[in-house]
Computed example of a mutant assay.
Amino acid sequence: MHETDQPDATTAPQQSPTADKTDERRFRLRPRTVVIAVAVLTAGALAAVGIVDWLRIDTESPADVRSAAGDDGKGAFGSVDCREKKCIALTFDAGPGQYTPRLLRILKEEKVPATFFLLGRKHIDTYPELVKQMAAEKHEIASHTWTHRNLTDLSTDEVREELERTNTAIEKLIGRKPTLMRPPQGRTNDDVNEISRDLGLSEVLWTVTAKDYKTNDSDLIEERVLDQAGRDGIILLHDIYRGTVPAVPGIITELKSRGYTFVTVPQLFAPGVPEPGKVYR
């Protein structure tokens, strides 16, 4: 689930699909190997890559939020009640970009709402009309920071700047600030939580990742998503990579055939509402 090996979203190199499949076979580890490898890692080594902070973060699920809200929650159901239906959320990070118009056409044709965690520099400021289109077509607009820096490596002032600048840019385009954010690489800690709370932002991670930042093989991306999909799932994809958008129609068609209803992240939590400063997946 964790994206610690993800490169900077604005500069990630494209890798050949064949190389990705070969590498995947070559480096696949058996469960026993993984256990041994983890056992020999020191706490200092874990801290060096930011994993310790991430492991200590408490998260809540959509079902937790719905249950806590009872019948008195204030979350909007949209067209479906996820307490009764088998819901799943499509989310896209680090856009908009050159492939986003095609994605929006697909989502419109399929009548599927999505949640877009938008990146500021070279994305929001480069494609403002796409941001407006997303909002007009009833997708959820959320933040993925301004420059995609690892927030746990920054000072509190820098974290605040990354989030505030993105909030301001989004509000200027669609008339409202986002209420959700996704920290780059899923890395967060108590300082990030506190600043997010001050800014009215809930942090949303994911339960499904295709690691589409490492491959252009659309069939492989589709396969990875479908293998991991489950009720209340939050699917992480990126609309800035060449292989991702072509995988989306197959993902939608298959999950619909399995009885899933696509919703935005806020709809997934309804009648509950994610609380600013908390982390959800």
Rank of each mutant, 00 (worst) to 15 (best):
G120D: 10
I106Y: 07
I106F: 05
R176N: 00
L163F: 04
A89Q: 14
E161R: 15
L103H: 02
K132G: 05
Q98F: 08
H148V: 05
R149H: 05
P101L: 13
G120Y: 04
K138Y: 00
L173F: 02
A169R: 01
E162V: 01
M134T: 01
Q98D: 14
V159F: 00
Y127Q: 04
A136R: 14
L151A: 03
A114R: 05
T152V: 15
D157G: 07
K177P: 01
P96H: 08
E137F: 03
T91A: 13
E161F: 03
V112H: 10
P101T: 14
D157T: 00
G175P: 03
L163A: 06
H123N: 15
I124Y: 10
V112N: 05
Y99Q: 10
S143M: 06
E110R: 14
A136H: 08
R102V: 10
L118M: 13
G120E: 13
R105G: 08
Q133G: 02
L119W: 06
T156C: 11
T152Y: 09
F117G: 10
I170A: 03
T115N: 14
R160V: 07
H148M: 08
W146P: 14
E129L: 08
E109K: 15
T168M: 08
H148A: 06
A136D: 13
H123F: 09
T152P: 10
E161S: 12
F116R: 06
K138H: 14
K177G: 00
L90F: 00
E109A: 14
T100C: 12
G175D: 06
L154N: 10
Y127W: 12
M134Q: 05
D125G: 09
K122M: 07
I170L: 04
A135R: 12
P128V: 01
L119R: 12
N167I: 01
H123S: 15
I88P: 08
G175R: 10
P113T: 01
T145A: 11
L118W: 09
P96F: 06
G175E: 10
C87G: 11
L119N: 12
R102G: 13
D125P: 04
D157S: 12
H139E: 01
K172E: 07
F116M: 11
H139D: 05
R102W: 02
T168F: 07
R102Y: 04
L90C: 03
P101C: 12
P128W: 02
E164N: 07
G120T: 07
Y127E: 03
I141T: 09
K111C: 00
D125T: 14
P113L: 06
A136Q: 11
R160S: 05
T166L: 05
K138Q: 13
E129G: 02
T115G: 12
A94D: 15
L163M: 14
E162L: 09
H144G: 11
L118C: 11
E109G: 14
P101S: 15
P96S: 02
D157W: 00
P101R: 14
E109T: 12
R149D: 01
E162P: 00
T168Y: 04
E161Y: 08
D157N: 09
V131T: 09
Q133L: 09
T156L: 13
Q133A: 10
R121E: 15
E129C: 03
T168C: 01
V159M: 05
L154A: 11
D157L: 04
L154S: 10
E164L: 08
Y99L: 08
I106M: 11
E164F: 00
R176L: 00
D125A: 05
H148W: 10
S143D: 06
R160I: 00
L104G: 04
E129D: 15
F117P: 12
W146F: 13
T147V: 03
